[in-house]
């Protein structure tokens, strides 16, 4: 069985977290490190937005500051996520890897098998769903809402129809980076308190829609599942779901160095985070 690298990098600040994911992508694209599964968390709790989102139009920065939250623009697509009580995962693998289908949609399905098995390990019944065109057109993909978890389109992991993991990808240097949030607990009010809406009524309506579509592990399991328990479950889950062995490893000195440089020149800068 193929061996991939497993990294635990703990709770860290947003710029470093994003820089490390990109540094792994670079190192993997140059053949310096094997495909890698990384687990991490956030300190401070952080609002992240997708690469193409417009920070100034969608984020209430006064509220972000007042609540002591970090802020970061991701290199990946998708919408806003509040990273707080969650286990974050990332997977880096070459586009040409034999397990990877060429279709973007199909690649989510393959990588999400690791998530599916992780939920199974926790004794929870998650399933993969793919929303067809009809459902998308029927408004399952609401326009005008900035929050990521409210658009369960394409392949998504759901429990009783509600989304439990939000994932996104970037494809650079012929390498796939997919990362996402496995929600241990979810504070919907807080997420919507830091996003901008045309009116309070719109905010309320979006929040209601969101509650119907997103759910945390705590809600499903009806008990608290700790970061460490989730980490063990999803490590086993990724091994089983991807059919690989995960060997605990460390960032290489080159990755550490590149991550530090990316914090300085990219993810730690206003020009990156507020660019759009």
């Amino acid at each position: 069985m193929e061996t991939w690298r497993l990294l635990h990098t703990g709770l860290a600040d947003p710029a470093w977290n994003m820089a490390v994911d990109e540094a792994i992508l670079h190192a993997n694209s140059r053949g310096l490190v094997p495909p890698t599964v990384r687990f991490y968390g956030w300190n401070p709790p952080t609002l992240s937005i997708g690469y193409f989102q417009r920070a100034g139009k969608e984020v209430d920065f006064e509220a972000v500051r007042a609540q002591g939250l970090g802020f970061i623009r991701r290199p990946t697509g998708g919408r806003a996520v509040l990273h707080d009580r969650e286990l974050t995962y990332s997977v880096v693998v070459p586009e040409s890897h034999e397990k990877m289908p060429t279709s973007v949609n199909e690649s989510y399905r393959v990588l999400s098998m690791g998530l599916l098995e992780g939920f199974r390990e926790l004794g929870l019944r998650a399933e993969m769903t793919s929303l067809g065109e009809d459902e998308k057109k029927a408004g399952m993909e609401p326009l005008g809402s900035a929050a990521c978890f409210d658009s369960p389109s394409w392949y998504e992991l759901v429990v009783e129809g509600r989304k439990v993991v939000g994932s996104a990808q970037v494809r650079q240097r012929h390498t796939i980076l997919q990362h996402g949030s496995i929600l241990l607990d979810l504070d919907v009010e807080q997420l919507f308190s830091v996003l901008l809406y045309a009116s309070e009524r719109t905010r309320e309506r979006m929040m209601r829609l969101f509650r119907d579509k997103a759910v945390s592990i705590k809600d499903i399991a009806a008990r608290d599942i700790s970061f460490d328990e989730a980490l063990r479950a999803f490590t086993t889950g990724f091994e089983r779901g991807l059919g690989v062995e995960l060997a605990p490893g460390l960032l290489t000195p080159e990755e550490e160095e590149l991550a530090a440089e990316l914090v300085r020149t990219k993810y730690g800068t206003d020009s990156w985070n507020y660019q759009k």
Partner: peptide, 8 residues
């Protein structure tokens, strides 16, 4: 960007 994926 497509399917929450940013591709070069």
């Amino acid at each position: 960007e497509s399917v929450k994926t940013v591709s070069d």
